[in-house]
């Protein structure tokens, strides 16, 4: 457990030593801020549903950009060998990196709290859905982090890792919107697979165990895939 924390601290620190953190956070805030506030005044309603509605799509681009280096860079430089010949287990490595990515996404979401705060000055803001939305955003970020980590463990090329990650996250987000084209018999199943579907439930302020279970199981499956990928390299 100690070693998970050390790996976490190192990975999290590296984000802020290099310019990646600042670039990714700036772009994220710019995109979400712009899309949210440009439509906000048209509705004339004091809620931040617009912000959360866009979040799955934004995150499915941003999170893979955060996670793409976690394994690919190590594989490319060769420091992977150094990491694995130190007394650490695969699981410690995976969890350390996973937590670093989740913490980074949390840090990225912190400045957006200014949106509900400024909205609360304009009208009666219901804080329930806001809290739910942030819990959902963290769960979504964790699930996408796990997927991005898995994509990163597959290749030593960061660009490929990014594109693979985006492809998986984006399909999970969009599957919900594509239901119209899909066969009726599969509808229930496919809807259940969509990340957007579960996220929108939570961001309404309803904390359903099914939705939480969904994000946890996506994380688990992706992290287990990462573990298998590491085994495969030996």
């Amino acid at each position: 457990m100690q070693r998970v924390i050390h790996i976490f601290k190192k990975e999290f620190g590296v984000y802020f030593v290099s310019p990646i953190a600042y670039i990714v956070i700036s772009i994220f805030l710019l995109v979400t801020g712009w899309f949210f506030f440009s439509a906000f005044f048209l509705f004339n309603q004091a809620n931040i549903r617009g912000f959360f509605a866009l979040l799955p799509i934004t995150l499915s681009f941003v999170v893979p950009a955060v996670t793409m280096r976690l394994f690919s860079e190590e594989l490319h430089v060769g420091s992977y060998e150094i990491l694995l010949t130190m007394p650490v287990t695969f699981l410690e490595v995976i969890f350390g990196k996973f937590l670093a990515s989740v913490a980074f996404i949390a840090a990225m979401l912190v400045p957006t709290i200014s949106y509900p705060i400024s909205v609360s000055f304009l009208g009666q803001l219901d804080w329930g859905p806001v809290v739910g939305g942030y819990i959902g955003a963290l769960l979504l970020g964790a699930a996408f982090s796990a997927i991005g980590l898995f994509a990163s463990s597959l290749t030593r090329n960061q660009i490929i890792a990014f594109i693979t990650g985006v492809a998986i996250c984006f399909s999970l987000t969009l599957i919900d919107k594509m239901l119209f084209f899909l066969p009726r018999s599969l509808l229930g199943l496919l809807q259940y697979l969509g990340a957007d579907f579960h996220f929108s439930n939570i961001s309404k302020g309803i904390l359903d165990s099914r939705d939480i279970l969904y994000f946890l199981s996506v994380s688990f499956i992706a992290l287990y895939g990462t573990y298998l990928g590491m085994q495969e390299k030996r």
């Binding site: 100690q2 070693r3 050390h6 790996i7 601290k9 190192k10 620190g13 590296v14 030593v17 290099s18 430089v77 060769g78 420091s79 060998e81 150094i82 010949t85 130190m86 007394p87 650490v88």
Partner: peptide, 27 residues
């Protein structure tokens, strides 16, 4: 203690930070 060929280390880290990190992992 193992030194791989051509010592592939974390390029972004400072030497001091890196050695501190290794010391932590090595408990």
């Amino acid at each position: 203690g193992y030194l791989p060929e051509s010592a592939p280390l974390y390029r972004d880290m400072l030497v001091y930070d890196y050695l501190g990190y290794v010391a932590d992992i090595r408990e």
